[in-house]
């Protein structure tokens, strides 16, 4: 699976939407990690799931 590229402007907007005002230098530093995370998120989307699969939150506690 190819690594999705993400540009600085997208990083800036994504961080601001999440409530963080990080500098361009800080965003450039995390670009490789974000691209790796995006690759994993694409893989996550590709996993076949039942429509009724219920998310696990606090689970199995008896």
């Amino acid at each position: 699976m190819t690594t999705p590229a993400i540009d600085l402007d997208s990083l800036r907007r994504g961080a601001r939407l999440a409530g963080f005002d990080w500098s361009d230098a800080e965003l450039e530093e995390i670009r490789p990690q974000v691209e790796n995370a995006l690759r994993l998120l694409r893989a996550l989307e590709a996993i076949p799931l039942r429509e009724d699969a219920e998310p696990t939150t606090l689970y199995r506690t008896v």
Binding site: L41, L44, E45, I47, L49, A53, E54, P55, T56, T57, Y59, R60
Partner: peptide, 13 residues
């Protein structure tokens, strides 16, 4: 994505 990950988690379990 967080919720989808928790759904996949159920499959692993």
């Amino acid at each position: 994505h967080y919720v989808r990950a928790q759904q996949v988690r159920a499959l692993v379990r």
